[in-house]
């Protein structure tokens, strides 16, 4: 009986302590205005946002930045429904829809990098030196001829990376619809990391963001190599879109706009430009205003209205 009481008391103490410590840690930041940001996993995964967030909160101590991450599709849903104040995404087509239907106020580009086409080091389809669309065409041809040797693994998850992959298949005249039921084409239906592991296992090609790829190769988890790492078709532009307070009155437009301004300020751009140098030996992003987009790129539509 006595022991039973001790056990009960112990459990109650744990619960109360957990609640107490939790309440204490939550109350240490009272009356802060919250800035909720939804983002794609690739930005969150690289750890860039963590640094930008710390610097921003230092500058604006009254704002508590909360980064919500959960995959591209749901990130866009959060924005569409007004559950967040700001979106940081990299899918131009869908971003423009957001501006058009009035969900977002404006679209500000703050960084870019390139998607990489990666594959086995012996490059069975011989794509090295080609541009992205030629490479996809070659992979499709060789895959058709030798489905045992040449394979391609797709995210297949409607992410920003997957959208880009679809676009390259269509631009290469192979057609996305035609590849999806080919025997050499596999869909992982998972995030970038898992997809890279599948591609590595199958000795296959895939399209990856550079950050995830570098972190997987650094630890020796995969032996794939980057084969094509630049060019118009692989350009990956990150943009910030504050949610329109006219449509969703509860959103914190002031903090959202401050965050966007901070991203493109010299201070924010310096953080973006340096990020990754220490960990991966090369920066993962190129900040936008200090390095205008490469001139070979068709001008990106900029639907901004002055704040």
């Amino acid at each position: 009986m006595n022991n039973k009481n001790i056990a009960i008391i112990a459990i109650i103490i744990i619960i109360i302590a957990a609640i107490g410590i939790y309440a204490f840690s939550a109350s240490s930041s009272p009356d802060k205005s919250k800035l909720r940001i939804s983002t794609t996993t690739s930005l969150e995964d690289t750890g860039l946002l963590k640094e930008v967030e710390a610097a921003f909160e230092k500058k604006y101590p009254g704002v508590d930045v909360q980064v919500v991450s959960g995959g591209t599709g749901i990130a866009l849903q959060y924005g569409q429904r007004g559950d967040v104040d700001l979106m940081l995404v990299h899918d131009k087509k869908r971003e423009e829809e957001f501006i058009k239907n009035g969900t977002g106020t404006n679209r500000t580009e703050f960084a870019y990098n390139y998607f990489w086409i990666v594959g086995p080091s012996n490059d069975p389809a011989g794509i090295k030196g080609l541009n992205a669309t030629e490479a996809f065409k070659k992979i499709a041809q060789e895959g058709q001829a030798n489905p045992d040797q040449v394979k391609f693994v797709s995210r297949g998850d409607e992410s920003g990376t997957h959208s880009r992959e679809k676009k390259i298949w269509n631009d290469s005249k192979v057609g996305y619809k035609n590849v999806t039921n080919s025997s050499w084409y596999l869909e992982s239906g998972k995030g970038m990391g898992d997809t890279l592991l599948v591609a590595n296992e199958k000795n296959a090609y895939t399209l990856s963001d550079s950050g995830t790829f570098l972190s997987y190769t650094k630890d020796g988890k995969i032996s794939l190599v980057p084969l094509i790492t630049s060019g118009k078709a692989l350009l990956n532009v990150y943009a910030a879109i504050p949610i329109n307070p006219d449509k969703h009155p509860k959103t914190n437009i002031e903090a959202a706009q401050n965050f966007v301004d901070f991203l493109v300020s010299p201070e924010g751009q310096a953080i973006i430009g340096k990020y990754g140098q220490e960990k991966y030996g090369q920066p993962l992003f190129t900040p936008v205003p200090t390095n205008p987009l490469p001139s070979l790129i068709t001008p990106l539509v900029s639907v901004s209205s002055p704040a």
Binding site: T41, D45, G47, G191, G193, T212, S215, D219, K221
Partner: peptide, 18 residues
Amino acid sequence: FTRVFTTTISLETSKGNI
């Protein structure tokens, strides 16, 4: 704020920190 064990595990896996 809302990060718990399972969401940390899923995030670290997608980062490659197996």
